[in-house]
């Protein structure tokens, strides 16, 4: 059973699941944001329609090899993240590589894609793309600090760097880590605000300001790949949060409920917030989130 084909099948299945769930969540978020702003909003399946349209379009132009490969780079990062994060508590249905990488590896593979994408965006020569990339990288330096602090606190407390082990800890003690390590959870959630790039941290795409930033100049299949990568990545990150702080999930229904609950946080925070300037965003993450990160580490060391 443990053959290479079984694993590849697992990856394909998890990919399709992540694609569908991620796309649905993105559609739901559009609907919810619209309702908050007292608009009707598109139907929740609008994103599937968009994706199909983009996929079926043929592309006429490209800006060179790097731009052509940019979406493939970001896809590598999204799927690798998905492959390292255990989808359900027993790995049977979605076998992946989670025994071959740990949290530190995950931190690094998560930035592989954005950097590859940044190169693709750079080659188009659109100044808005490059400005978006510089903003994105700057913001990343901001939110990675509390995020790493939260992870370091968990890793120190339980003497492991493996996601599976951290899930094991929760299964054995019966408490979710969001309750037993509350400060780490707060720091991680605040860092997540930047990770999901809803406002006030939507400075990378920045509608009406940067004209969608790095993804401009991409159309047709390129944009389709970028979009599906975004959906997969969002699902993988949400699953990671559920695995780390909410004890993972035993079946798909629970997984969907938990991931959607987490997903609501950055979305609802974003609906009512105007956009930050880049330096404000960075300093935001180095303020309270970092403070909670410090508390988390102190908590992990002394308790």
């Amino acid at each position: 059973m443990d053959s290479i084909w079984y694993k590849i099948l697992g990856v394909v299945v998890s990919f399709i699941l992540a694609f569908i769930v991620g796309m649905t969540y993105m559609g739901l978020s559009r609907k919810i944001i619209a309702r908050v702003q007292n608009r009707k909003g598109p139907p929740f399946y609008q994103n599937f329609i968009d994706a199909m349209k983009l996929y079926s379009k043929s592309t006429a132009i490209h800006h060179g090899l790097m731009q052509h490969l940019g979406p493939a780079f970001i896809m590598v990062s999204s799927i690798m993240t998905l492959m390292i994060v255990p989808v359900l508590n027993d790995g049977k249905w979605f076998p992946n590589l989670n025994f071959d990488g740990d949290l530190i590896f995950l931190l690094y593979i998560m930035v592989f894609g954005p950097l590859g994408m940044a190169l693709g965006a750079g080659q188009t020569g659109n100044p808005n793309s490059a400005i978006g990339v510089t903003r994105g990288l700057s913001q990343m330096v901001g939110f990675e600090i509390p995020w790493v602090m939260a992870l370091v606190a968990l890793m120190m407390q339980f003497k492991t760097t493996s996601i599976v082990d951290l899930m094991e800890v929760q299964a054995q003690s019966g408490t979710w880590l969001m309750f037993s390590s509350p400060f780490a959870f707060i720091a991680a959630v605040l860092a997540m605000l930047g990770m999901f790039r809803y406002s006030p941290f939507d400075i990378v795409g920045a509608p009406t300001e940067l004209a969608s930033g790095p993804v401009s100049e991409n159309g047709g299949k390129y944009l389709f790949t970028l979009m599906s990568s975004g959906a997969v990545f969002a699902f993988a990150k949400l699953t990671l949060y559920v695995d780390l702080f909410m004890g993972g999930a035993d079946n798909l229904i629970v997984l969907l409920l938990k991931t959607f609950a987490i997903y609501l946080i950055p979305m609802l925070y974003g609906v009512v917030s105007p956009r930050y300037r880049t330096e404000q965003a960075i300093r935001y993450f180095w303020g309270w989130p970092t403070f909670f990160g410090l508390l988390a580490i102190l908590h992990a060391v002394f308790f």
Binding site: I61, Q123, G125, N126, A211, E217
Partner: peptide, 10 residues
């Protein structure tokens, strides 16, 4: 697809 220069952008 055909290659376009970096001036040919939207």
């Amino acid at each position: 697809t055909r290659y376009v220069t970096t001036k040919d952008i939207s």
